[in-house]
């Protein structure tokens, strides 16, 4: 077990360094911060509302992540395959799942770093009023989990192809489906022809419903479990795909 952890740490460290050796991490962090600020302050009117909470901040995260997370995750495996380094990595004494988890954690750390750098907004809201910081913490945890879920999906699509653009588009489409599944226009469309249990089922896989309840400050274990199960399922599928590719 200690071997596994050491291997995962080694791979994660290299991957994390890789993000900062190229402009990917910097571009992601800067764009994320700019867009988050723009949506929060300009579009949602954080100041005009006069409410001491970060609702206007978190509301946009599912949409920001929709494009930005696949951009971070698309290189995870497609680059490895394009450059042939996957052959190097998987002939080392490491298992495929150690490599998958290590790479995933590195990319997740980049996302976590970007999210952590939004701390001025927390300071601002605390300076202006008396927000419930527990709710804000819940929002951050929910946002991080959601980013992880998007990222695991990107990891999966990235294992499918050596082409980063294809990997990016597939990830965006899958993530978009997970967002829209619970959106009223979509459920309304389904209600007309599908049975109610099916509509409920589709709505239950939606990111929005789960993220909304978390950002209201209700850290329900079911919502946490939802995001974790997407991560586990997607990483498991990544493993299946990586294996299948090796089998030719």
């Amino acid at each position: 077990m200690s071997d596994s952890i050491r291997n995962i740490r080694t791979i994660a460290k290299r991957e994390f360094g890789g993000y900062f050796a190229s402009p990917v991490a910097f571009v992601f962090i800067v764009i994320f911060l700019l867009l988050a600020a723009f949506f929060t302050f300009m579009i949602a009117g954080f100041f005009e509302r006069g409410e001491a909470n970060l609702q206007t901040f978190f509301t946009w995260h599912p949409w920001l992540y929709l494009f930005l997370v696949p951009a971070v995750g698309m290189r995870l495996w497609s680059d490895e395959r394009r450059l042939g380094t996957i052959e190097l990595l998987l002939t080392m004494p490491v298992t495929a799942w150690q490599a998958i988890v290590g790479k995933f954690l590195a990319a997740w750390a980049v996302l976590a770093l970007a999210l952590a750098l939004t701390f001025p907004v927390v300071i601002t809201v605390n300076y202006l009023g008396h927000p419930d910081n527990g709710v804000i913490l819940g929002g951050y945890i929910g946002s991080l989990l959601m980013a992880g879920a998007y990222l695991s999906i990107s990891s999966m699509t990235s294992a499918l192809t050596r082409n980063q653009v294809v990997s990016f588009i597939l990830a965006v489409v899958l993530a978009l489906f997970l967002i829209l599944a619970g959106y009223p226009p979509v459920t309304g469309l389904l209600v007309q022809w599908a049975s109610p249990w099916f509509v409920d089922g589709v709505a239950a896989v939606s990111m929005m419903t789960h993220f909304e309840s978390i950002q209201k400050g209700v850290l329900d274990s079911r919502d946490v479990l939802y995001f974790l199960s997407i991560i586990v399922f997607s990483l498991f599928t990544t493993g299946v795909i990586v294996r299948a590719h090796r089998a030719g």
Partner: peptide, 13 residues
């Protein structure tokens, strides 16, 4: 120890 064909490596390192 393995040297794959085309000697791949991580270019950013």
């Amino acid at each position: 120890g393995y040297l794959p064909e085309n000697a791949p490596s991580y270019g950013d390192m």
